[in-house]
Computed example of a mutant assay.
Amino acid sequence: MVITEKQVAEKINKLKKEKNAVILAHYYQRPEIQDIADYIGDSLELSRKAQQTDADIIVFCGVRFMAETAKILNPDKKVLHPNPESGCPMADMATVEGVLRLKKEHPDAVVVSYINTNADVKAVSDIIVTSRNAVKVVKSLHAKKIIFVPDQFLGSFVAKQIPEKEFILWKGFCPPHFNLSAKELLALKEKYPDAKIAVHPECNTDTAEIADFVGSTTQIIEYATTCEADTVIIGTEVGIEYALKKKNPNKKYIFPQAAEYCGVVHCCDMKKNTLDKVLQVLEEENNEIILDKELMEKARIPLEKMLSIS
C-alpha cells in the first residue's frame, strides 16, 4: 500500500511526541521537511536551538557538519541525521593537517573557522563564526592576524569590512554559490530594473559586489520580505523560496535560472534528506552521530566562544 506524504508526516509527528524528539531543519531543506520541523533556521539559529532543547532526541535535517554541531553542543543527547550521505563539499575542503600547518607558519594568528567545517577542524580552531555573525565576531578579537577557514569568499567579505586585520584565506568555496555569476544577476536586473539583488556572502566576490544586500540566509529572508522593492532577485539556495513566500507572499522573488549560465542555486546535498528518511531514523533511531568524547570537548570550546559573543 502506498503511503501518502500526509500520512508520513502524521507518523513523524506522532513519533516525535512519543520519543520526546525535536526536528531541526535548515531553510535549504525540502518544503515538506520544513513543514514538519519544530525549528527552521540558518546555522546560527539552529546552533542556538540545538543548545537549548530539552528533547532526548535531535533529528537534524541538514548536512552532516550541522548534525555534528548539534551533537557537540549536546553530547548527552541522541542526534540523528536522516541521510549520512548528505555532506558539505566546502566543509570537506578543510583539513586538520592544513590548518595546523598554517598555525605553525603564523603563530601570532587566530584560527577563525566558518561553522561549515567538520568536527575535527572545529577542534583545532580558536573560534567559530557563521555568515551572520562573522564580522562581529572577528572584530571582537584582539588578534591582528586571522586564518579564515574554509570559505575564501566569506573570508574576503569579512576582510573588506575589517581592513585593520590581516587575513590568510583558506581556498575553499561552496560550489552552488560560487557558480552564481554576476553576469547572470545583471541580466535579471535588466529584465527587472526596479528589483533589488540580495546574495549570500558565499557567492564569489564579483557577484557579491553588484548586490544591494549581502547577508546570511536569515538576513536575506528578512531583507527580501521587508525591503521596499516589490521584486527581489535572490542569490542563494532556492530552498529559501518556501520561507519567503510564507513571510510575504505579495512580493515577487526571482531565482536565477538562465540555462546559458549555471541555473538555479541548488544544493543537492541538502535535498538528500526526505520525509521517508526522517520517519525511518525516528522509527529505528539509526544514523546516530557518534563523535569521540575528547574531540567533542575540544570542538565545543570555539563554538561556545562564538555563542557567547553572538
Rank of each mutant, 00 (worst) to 15 (best):
K272V: 07
K17R: 14
V59P: 01
C61L: 11
G87F: 11
T231M: 06
E288L: 03
Y261W: 10
V63F: 08
A21Q: 05
V8K: 08
I23A: 02
A299W: 03
P89S: 14
N179V: 05
A198F: 10
I115T: 02
G62W: 14
E297Q: 15
F65P: 01
G263E: 02
A50C: 10
L102C: 07
V99W: 05
R132G: 12
I40Y: 00
P75G: 09
I290R: 10
K277Y: 05
G41K: 05
L180R: 04
N74R: 05
C262K: 06
Q7T: 11
T95C: 02
V111Y: 10
K183A: 15
N13E: 14
L307M: 15
S86M: 11
F157H: 13
L141K: 07
I23C: 02
T69H: 01
H266F: 15
L244I: 05
H81L: 15
N287C: 06
I240A: 04
M296V: 01
V135S: 01
P163V: 11
F65V: 03
V124N: 07
E285Y: 07
H26L: 14
R64T: 13
L295W: 13
I57E: 03
A119K: 06
T217C: 10
V99E: 09
I146R: 03
I168G: 03
C262S: 15
A109M: 15
E45K: 10
L80R: 05
P175K: 06
V138E: 03
M90D: 09
T218R: 13
D108L: 12
C227Y: 11
V121I: 12
V63D: 04
G215T: 00
E241V: 07
I233F: 10
L80F: 06
R48F: 15
K305I: 00
A67H: 04
L169N: 01
I58R: 00
V110A: 13
D194Y: 08
V8E: 08
K14E: 15
C88N: 07
E283G: 01
K11I: 04
N286W: 04
K17T: 09
K14G: 01
F255T: 04
S156Q: 12
G87R: 14
I33H: 00
L279T: 01
S113V: 06
L185A: 00
K71I: 11
A211M: 07
T225M: 14
Q219G: 08
P176T: 07
G87P: 04
H177T: 11
L279M: 02
E68C: 04
F167T: 01
L141H: 13
S131I: 09
D151W: 06
F178D: 12
L15Y: 02
F173P: 01
F255G: 01
E164P: 02
Y223I: 13
Q51E: 14
A143Y: 06
D151G: 04
E202A: 06
I309L: 14
I147V: 09
E222R: 10
T95N: 00
L279D: 00
E284T: 13
E5R: 13
F157I: 04
Y28V: 09
E285R: 00
N204Q: 13
N287Y: 07
I162T: 11
L73R: 03
L303T: 08
G215L: 08
E288Y: 07
K247Y: 13
A224E: 12
S86L: 10
R101K: 14
L295F: 10
N83E: 15
D35W: 04
A94L: 15
D54F: 04
